[in-house]
Every structure is written in structure tokens, then in C-alpha cells.
């Protein structure tokens, strides 16, 4: 069967030591059973490795940082679309999602570019600062947390928390603090980078288990694969992980997707305690960097998401292979300065 040609723009090309999901998503898309994709990379930084991976990414354009706002992003996408005729965009960064969600309708109606994203409400509800309320509403266990807007509020939390505790940024970063001074240090570092508020979270002892899943927006789970990290880098990222057979975890996942009518991809991060309780730590409203493991287990989530973005019906995956591992590796590409010059000065490569 001849596959259908399609042009897909993908962000998150930073396949570095704390990787974005873009490259894994692209590998999955290239294995689509139905589509033959032309991949347009969208990059923020000239050093994102994906820009230079020409066997995976056909062409890359620089786009404005999320902090430049929706209008700037739209303007740039219009320019890119004139040359590339995009069919679908798959954004992969937490920090950019707000802007893309805001643009979803306009991109679809004005430019016929499709996405498959959670609604603004779904996106906001699972923000780290709202997660505690989320847990209450949907009856999921969530570690106690509190948002801080200034350093002076630190003494106020001491009655409610014991050390150690976790200090988190609005979008990224999580650091463990063992003292009031450390909270302040982490607060300053994280807030400079990611703004306010800062979230203080109860530290739960146990092992971390994650699920990558997709919902079709009606409450149905299209696919879900649980994984435990086996080896963690000093940045807290998985270096290797293994797919699990954990019905309880899958049930929690299905329940969350059903209750929220989640639309699009999501990664659920849990702590499993020694007495088999699951605490939800975070919901990331996008594919995780390890999404290719799901493909390896027989569930090609990016391909399913692509089909749903284009309005096609997809069947739910009924099983996944357990005991499959992923082991991440790094690789030194040789890049000509000319290429760096091009992306730096012309904003495309």
C-alpha cells in the first residue's frame, strides 16, 4: 500500500542530556503504517541536536521563545506555512503549550493546520500549582503541596511540611530541600528561570513509576504504557527504563482520562509507596522523552495522535509488551560550521 504524504512540524528537538521528546516522536512518526511524513523541525536554540539530524528532520526553522507571546508565534508559523504547507503540528514542550492551545482554533480554521491538544481548562487544571485541587476533584492521591509567590512566605509553610521536601518550578525543575536555606536557594534559582509561583511539595518515599498515554477527548484511553525508570541521570532523567505489567496503575490512568476527558498525549508520574499506594506527582500534557518505548511495546502513540489530529477514527490499543527496555545513549554528530551559520543567521536549515 502506498503511504500518504504529509507534512508535520515537531518541536522539542533538544535530544540532549535532559532530552525533549521531539526526536523520539519523529522516530515514531517515521514508522507510521499509513503516512509518509515530511518532518519540519521547529527549534528555539541553534544547538538543538535535531536541527542537524538530517535523516530524521527534513528541514528546521527557528521559532520565537514562548515568552514572546502568541502573536509572534502565529506570525512565524504563517511564514513557515507559506513555504512548507504544514498539515499537523505536534508541540512537545510544557512551556510552549499554552501558546499553541491558544492558537489551536485559528491554526485549524485559517491555515488548516491541525493539532491534537488538551483544552486550556485541562491544561490549567493539571498545572503543578493546581494539582492538589485536581487530586481532590478526581479522587487521586496527590502529595500535599503549596504555592509560594515570595521568599517571605517560606516560614509560613513550616507547620505543614517536614523536611525533606521538594521545590518545583511552574514548568520544569524539581529540587529536594533539607533546610529552610535550601528552599530559599532553590526558590531563587528556579524562579529566575521559570518565573513564579514556586511549588513546595511533600516528599513521598517510594519508587517512581510513569505512564505515557493518549486520550481521544471523550474519556476513552487510546493507549497507555507504564514504565519504571531503572537508571536515573544526575538530572533526574531516565537513562534506562522498563515497561511494566501493572493493572492498578493502568486503572488509575484510565480513570483519570475518563474523568477529565483528556484530549491528546500525557505523561503521568507517580510514586509507588511500599504499601502499594500510588501518589500522582505530575501530569505532563505531552509525550515524554521516552515515548519510543511505547512504540517498542507495540503502541505507536504519535501515529495514533497524528490520525486523530486529522480527524480519523482510531481503535484503542488493547495490550502492550511488558519487560521491554529502553536504554538511552548519546552520540557525537559531526557538524559543519556552515550549517550552524545558516540556522544562526537565516533562522532555517
Amino acid at each position: 500500500m502506498k503511504k500518504t504524504d504529509i507534512t508535520i512540524a515537531v518541536t522539542g528537538l533538544n535530544a540532549i542530556d535532559s532530552p525533549g521528546p521531539g526526536i523520539s516522536v519523529i522516530r515514531a512518526l517515521r514508522e507510521s503504517s499509513y503516512y509518509n511524513p515530511r518532518i519540519i523541525g521547529l527549534s528555539y536554540d541553534t544547538m538543538e541536536p535535531g536541527i542537524y539530524m538530517h535523516d530524521l528532520v527534513d528541514k528546521t526553522y527557528q521559532i520565537p521563545f514562548p515568552s514572546a507571546g502568541v502573536d509572534n508565534l502565529l506570525h512565524r508559523i504563517r511564514e513557515i506555512n507559506k513555504k512548507e504547507k504544514l498539515d499537523v503540528i505536534i508541540p512537545n514542550f510544557d512551556a510552549e503549550l499554552f501558546n499553541f492551545i491558544k492558537l489551536e482554533q485559528r491554526l485549524s480554521e485559517d491555515l488548516n493546520i491541525k493539532m491534537f491538544l488538551p483544552s486550556l481548562n485541562q491544561f490549567e487544571e493539571r498545572q503543578k500549582s493546581n494539582l492538589f485541587a485536581f487530586g481532590k476533584k478526581y479522587k487521586v492521591k496527590v502529595p500535599k503541596n503549596k504555592t509560594l509567590f515570595s521568599l517571605s512566605e517560606i516560614p509560613l509553610i513550616e507547620n505543614d511540611f517536614t523536611f525533606p521536601l521538594v521545590v518545583k518550578g511552574k514548568y520544569y525543575d524539581a529540587k529536594i530541600a533539607y533546610s529552610r536555606e535550601q528552599i530559599a536557594q532553590h526558590f531563587e534559582k528556579i524562579s529566575v528561570r521559570w518565573g513564579l509561583p514556586i511549588i513546595i511539595q511533600e516528599y513521598i518515599f517510594g519508587s517512581e513509576v510513569n505512564v505515557t498515554a493518549i486520550g481521544d477527548g471523550t474519556g476513552r484511553t487510546v493507549g497507555a504504557v507504564p514504565m519504571r525508570k531503572q537508571y536515573i541521570t544526575d538530572k533526574g532523567k531516565a537513562w534506562s527504563g522498563i515497561s511494566l505489567d501493572d493493572d492498578k496503575l493502568l486503572k488509575i490512568t484510565h480513570d483519570i482520562i475518563k474523568a477529565t476527558k483528556w484530549k491528546g498525549s500525557l505523561e503521568l508520574e507517580f510514586i509507588k509507596t511500599s504499601n502499594e499506594e500510588y501518589y500522582l506527582l505530575e501530569i505532563n500534557p505531552r509525550f515524554p522523552a521516552w515515548i519510543y518505548l511505547a512504540v517498542g511495546c507495540g503502541q505507536n502513540h504519535p501515529d495514533a495522535l497524528l490520525k486523530m489530529a486529522l480527524g480519523r477514527k482510531v481503535k484503542s490499543f488493547s495490550k502492550h509488551e511488558t519487560g521491554k527496555m529502553f536504554i538511552r545513549y548519546s552520540y557525537d554528530m559531526i557538524v559543519n560550521l556552515k550549517e550552524f551559520e545558516k540556522i544562526s543567521t537565516l533562522g532555517e536549515l
Binding site: L337, F340, E341, K342, S344, T345
Partner: peptide
Amino acid sequence: ISDSGFIFNPTTGDSFS
């Protein structure tokens, strides 16, 4: 120095525009 205004200093490895 190239026509695009890109400058490379091979001694330090820095590039500029």
C-alpha cells in the same frame, strides 16, 4: 567573515553575527 554577517574566530571557537 561571511556575507550573511557571520563571523567565526577559530582561535577561541566563538561565533558572532
